Amino acid sequence: MVKQVEKYYTTLLSVTEIRKAPIHNLEHSQEVVKNMEHITTAINTNSNDKGLLHMAS
């Protein structure tokens, strides 16, 4: 499910008017996910919670 959500939002943020927004564009969203991965690794989050946080990011 995480990959499906990632694919959907990547497409949404790449091909719609949202891509022109100065924030909350694809680049910003990818940075949020990257930071979430660093934090969840640092605090030893389980894979289920990490998946939920990934989708929320």
Rank of each mutant, 00 (worst) to 15 (best):
E27Y: 06
Q30P: 01
S47N: 12
S57E: 03
K20C: 03
L13V: 05
T41I: 02
V2L: 01
E17A: 12
G51Y: 05
T40S: 11
Q4D: 14
I43C: 11
T45M: 15
Q4K: 13
L53W: 00
N48Q: 13
T11C: 07
S29Y: 05
T40Y: 06
K3A: 11
Y9P: 00
E17W: 09
E27K: 07
A21Y: 05
I43W: 07
M1D: 10
L13R: 11
K3W: 05
H38M: 10
E27T: 13
H54N: 06
T45A: 15
A56L: 11
D49I: 06
T11V: 09
Y9Q: 07
L13P: 03
N44G: 08
I43V: 15
V2D: 01
T40R: 08
E6V: 08
V5P: 00
T45G: 01
K50H: 10
E31D: 03
D49C: 08
V32D: 03
T45N: 02
T40N: 13
T11Q: 13
E31S: 12
V2C: 04
V33Q: 08
H54A: 11
Y8I: 06
G51W: 03
T16Y: 03
N44I: 02
H38S: 10
I23C: 04
N35R: 14
I39F: 15
